[in-house]
Nucleic acid binder design. Sequence first.
DNA 1: TCGCAGAACCGGGTTACCTCA
DNA 2: CATGAGGTAACCCGGTTCTGC
Length: 288
Amino acid sequence: MGLDDTCNTCLVLGLGFSSTPGNPPKPKDQTSMQPPAVMAAPALSFEPFLTLGLSVESYRVNVTEKVDVNKGGYLLHRRRHHEEPPTSAAAGYVYRQASPDPSGVSSFSSGRVKRERELLSSEEVEVEKNSCRVSDEDEDGVSARKKLRLTKEQSALLEESFKQHSTLNPNQKQALARELNLKPRQVEVWFQNRRARTKLKQTEVDCEFLKRCCETLTNENRRLQKELQELKSLKMAAQPFYANRPAATLAMCPSCERTGGDGNPKNPFSIPSKPRFYNHVTNPSAAC
DNA sequence: TCGCAGAACCGGGTTACCTCA
DNA sequence: CATGAGGTAACCCGGTTCTGC
């Protein structure tokens, strides 16, 4: 092993996702977004490479399954799982709830679903009749988009509901609409937009985190390049003097400038026969 | 007047259910 | 009777439009 071989001392810097402090524990039935974090460098490797990168696949997957950074969990997978609430099972209520289905393929299998929806839709019409806050048409019948301004009370209730369920089942939507004197469609839209805002916020947080990781790794790369350069210049300077010695027996610690050798403890230039690796973060010198 | 937040809308994808050959 | 295809409804998402402040 020569100095060039010492350059083969690996540096592996990985960037991936791991849990971030402060993230709420993921609910049992939800997958969670794991914010990115620098992975610990592997202890041993013999290939010379410095990696700065993301696991694209894991990022993609995780980004689509994240937990609201400040409002609790939310679901991005389409889920059509439902279950009967304990109190209303006999009445045949249908719930849409988060599904643990990891494939993202959802299930919404109940023979009662459609009937339930039909019942609800008729109810929805009634609610919409009663809802006077927003109208799709003006008095003269001309379609005009009017923007709803939610009151503080309405917003608070919607937020509260979102904290509990980031998605609504038809019953919840109806109940919420009734309570807020809004159209079920408006409640639905609010939840859709709310989920989108949550995701956007999470994406921004992730982006910032990755930027910081990138900076850190860039600096580390620069430092190691410099160290490598120093090693090379030391090798060049030492070559005339130790011309008869195999290059593999030469090594010098750039930090303490001690020179290693062939592993013989009596030889001041000996290096261990086996390469010693170290955590460059906690121990910047391999030779020491 | 401009920018922003967010409500509303649109198109596309997925799933469940129903009907019919 | 079982089954597969086609149609429909409902939901969600990403993206966009547009309104009110």
